[in-house]
Measured scan of single mutants.
Amino acid sequence: VDYIVEYDYDAQHDDELTIRKGDIIKNVKKLEEEGWLEGELNGKRGMFPDNFVKEIK
């Protein structure tokens, strides 16, 4: 499942992704941690907030 970024987010920890509006995040999975998703961007896998992105259908 792929998501498109709607709002910029700067990573706060090493396991998070810095994302920018218009980025496409690939292979996204829901995490047990409420409010977070995990996906791949530019060869890096990491977490990001689910309210900054929208699923591409």
Score class of each variant (00 low, 15 high):
Asp15Trp: 15
Lys44Met: 13
Ala11Gln: 13
Phe48Lys: 00
Tyr7Leu: 14
Ile4Gly: 08
Asp10Val: 14
Asp50Gly: 09
Gly46Ala: 06
Asp15Ile: 12
Phe48Asn: 01
Ile25Gln: 00
Tyr3Phe: 06
Asp15Asn: 10
Lys26His: 13
Val5Tyr: 02
Val1Gly: 13
Leu31Pro: 14
Leu41Val: 08
Ile56Thr: 04
Met47Asn: 07
Leu31Val: 13
Gln12His: 11
Lys26Asn: 10
Asn42Glu: 08
Arg45Phe: 08
Glu40Ala: 10
Ile56Gly: 03
Lys30Ala: 09
Gly35Tyr: 04
Val1Gln: 13
Lys26Pro: 01
Leu41Ile: 08
Lys44Ser: 08
Leu41Pro: 00
Lys54Glu: 13
Lys26Gly: 08
Lys44Arg: 14
Ile25Ala: 02
Val28Ile: 05
Gln12Ala: 10
Met47Lys: 08
Glu40Tyr: 11
Arg45Ile: 07
Gly22Asp: 05
Gly35Glu: 05
Lys26Gln: 07
Val53Arg: 03
Lys26Trp: 07
Phe52Ser: 05
Val5Asn: 01
Asp23Ile: 04
Phe52Trp: 03
Asp50Phe: 15
His13Phe: 11
Ile4Pro: 01
Pro49Asp: 03
Val53Gly: 09
Leu17Trp: 01
Lys30Tyr: 09
Glu55Phe: 02
Asn51Phe: 04
Asp23Val: 05
Glu16Gln: 11
Asp23Ala: 11
Ala11Phe: 02
Glu6Thr: 14
Lys29His: 11
Leu41Tyr: 12
Glu6His: 12
Tyr3Thr: 03
Pro49Ala: 11
Glu38Met: 08
Val53Tyr: 03
Gly43Leu: 09
Lys30Asn: 08
Gly39Ala: 02
Tyr9Thr: 01
Gly22Asn: 14
Lys54Arg: 14
Phe48Ser: 01
Asp50Asn: 12
Val5Lys: 00
His13Ser: 13
Gly43Gln: 07
Asn27Lys: 07
Gly39Phe: 00
Glu33Asn: 08
Tyr7Arg: 15
Phe48Val: 15
Leu17His: 05
Ala11His: 04
Asp2Phe: 15
Lys30Gly: 09
Leu31Tyr: 08
Val5Trp: 01
Lys44Glu: 07
Asn27Phe: 15
Asp10Leu: 12
Phe48His: 00
Gly43Ile: 02
Glu33Arg: 14
Asp23Phe: 07
Lys57Ser: 15
Tyr7Glu: 14
Met47Thr: 09
Val1Lys: 11
Gly46Ile: 04
Glu55His: 04
Trp36Glu: 01
Gly35Ser: 06
Asp2Arg: 15
Lys54Trp: 05
Ile56Gln: 06
Glu33Met: 12
Thr18Pro: 03
Gly22Trp: 06
Val53Pro: 02
Gly46Thr: 01
Glu16Asp: 05
Asn42Tyr: 15
Gln12Asp: 08
Val5Thr: 11
Asp2Gln: 15
Lys54Asn: 08
Asp23Gly: 05
Glu33Gln: 13
Glu33Ser: 12
Glu55Leu: 08
Glu34Leu: 11
Val1Arg: 10
Val28Pro: 03
His13Ile: 06
Lys30Glu: 07
Ile19Thr: 02
Asn42Gln: 10
Phe48Leu: 11
Leu17Glu: 00
Ile24Trp: 05
Arg20Ile: 05
Asp8Ile: 02
Glu33Val: 13
Phe52Met: 08
Glu33Ile: 14
Glu40His: 07
Asn42Asp: 13
Lys54Val: 10
Asp23Leu: 07
Lys44Ile: 09
Val1Ala: 13
Lys21Phe: 06
Val28His: 01
Leu37Asn: 04
Lys21Asp: 03
Asp10Asn: 13
Gly35His: 11
Glu38Pro: 00
Leu37Ala: 07
Glu40Leu: 12
Gly43Asp: 06
Asn51Val: 11
Ile4Leu: 07
Glu33Pro: 09
Glu34Pro: 10
Lys30Ser: 09
Gly46Asn: 01
Gly35Asn: 07
Lys54Asp: 06
Lys21Val: 12
Ile25Val: 10
Gln12Ser: 10
Glu32Pro: 10
Glu38Arg: 11
Lys44Pro: 01
Gly43Thr: 05
Ala11Thr: 04
Gln12Gly: 08
Gly39Leu: 00
Glu55Tyr: 02
Lys29Met: 15
Glu40Val: 13
Ile19Leu: 15
Trp36Met: 08
Glu16Lys: 04
Ile25Thr: 01
Arg20Glu: 03
Glu16Ala: 07
Glu33Trp: 12
Gly46Tyr: 01
Lys57Leu: 15
Asp50Val: 13
Lys29Gln: 11
Leu17Asp: 00
Asn51His: 05
Gln12Glu: 09
Pro49Ile: 07
Asp50Glu: 14
Glu32Leu: 13
Glu16Val: 03
Glu34Val: 11
Lys44Trp: 09
Glu34Asp: 11
Lys44Gln: 14
Ile4Val: 08
Asn51Ala: 10
Asp15Glu: 08
Val53Asn: 03
Phe48Ile: 15
Glu32Phe: 13
Asp14Ser: 14
Asn51Arg: 13
Tyr9Ile: 01
Lys54Leu: 10
Thr18Glu: 04
Asp50Ser: 15
Ile25Trp: 00
Glu38Val: 08
Glu55Gln: 05
Lys30Gln: 09
Val28Ser: 07
Trp36Gly: 01
Tyr9Pro: 00
Glu16Ser: 04
Arg45Asn: 05
Val5Asp: 00
Lys44Thr: 12
Glu34Phe: 10
Asp8Lys: 05
Met47Gln: 07
Gly39Trp: 00
Asp23His: 10
Leu17Ile: 07
Gly35Trp: 04
Gly22Val: 01
Asp15Ser: 13
Lys30Thr: 06
Lys30Phe: 07
Leu31Trp: 08
Gly39Met: 00
Gly46Ser: 02
Glu33Lys: 12
Ile4Phe: 10
Phe52Glu: 02
Glu38Ser: 13
Ile24Pro: 02
Glu33Leu: 14
Phe52Ala: 09
Gly39Lys: 00
Ile25Ser: 01
Asp15Pro: 08
Ile25His: 00
Lys54Phe: 06
Tyr3Ile: 02
Val53Gln: 03
Asn27Met: 06
Ile24Gly: 02
Met47Gly: 06
Lys44His: 08
Asp10His: 12
Lys26Arg: 14
Asp50Thr: 14
Gly43Tyr: 09
Lys21Pro: 04
Arg20Met: 05
Ile4Asp: 03
Ile19Pro: 01
Glu32Met: 10
Asp10Met: 12
Lys30Ile: 10
Val5Met: 02
Tyr3Glu: 01
Glu32Gly: 11
Ile25Phe: 00
Tyr9His: 05
Lys30Pro: 10
Glu32Asp: 12
Glu33Asp: 12
Asp50Ile: 13
Asp14Leu: 14
Glu34Asn: 10
Thr18Gly: 03
Arg20Asn: 05
Gly46Gln: 01
Leu31Ala: 13
Glu33Gly: 13
Lys26Ala: 12
Glu33His: 13
Val5Pro: 02
Phe52Ile: 07
Asn51Trp: 07
Glu6Pro: 03
Asn42Val: 06
Gln12Phe: 07
Val5His: 01
Lys21Gly: 07
Tyr9Arg: 15
Glu32Ile: 10
Asp2Ile: 13
Ala11Trp: 02
Gly39Ile: 01
Lys54His: 10
Gly39Thr: 01
Lys54Tyr: 05
Leu17Pro: 00
Ile24Met: 06
Gly35Ala: 04
Gly43Pro: 01
Lys44Asp: 04
His13Met: 10
Lys21Glu: 06
Lys44Val: 11
Ile24Asp: 01
Ile24His: 04
Asn27Thr: 08
Asn42Ile: 04
His13Gln: 11
Lys57His: 15
Glu38Ala: 11
Asn27Ala: 10
Asp14Ala: 11
Ile56Asn: 05
Asp8Ala: 11
Val1Ile: 10
His13Gly: 08
Ile24Gln: 04
Leu17Phe: 03
Asp2Pro: 11
Glu40Lys: 06
Gly22Leu: 05
Asn27Gln: 09
Tyr7Asp: 14
Val5Ser: 04
Leu31Arg: 12
His13Leu: 13
Asn27Tyr: 15
Lys21Thr: 07
Thr18His: 05
Asn42Gly: 08
Asp50His: 14
Phe52Asn: 03
Val28Asn: 02
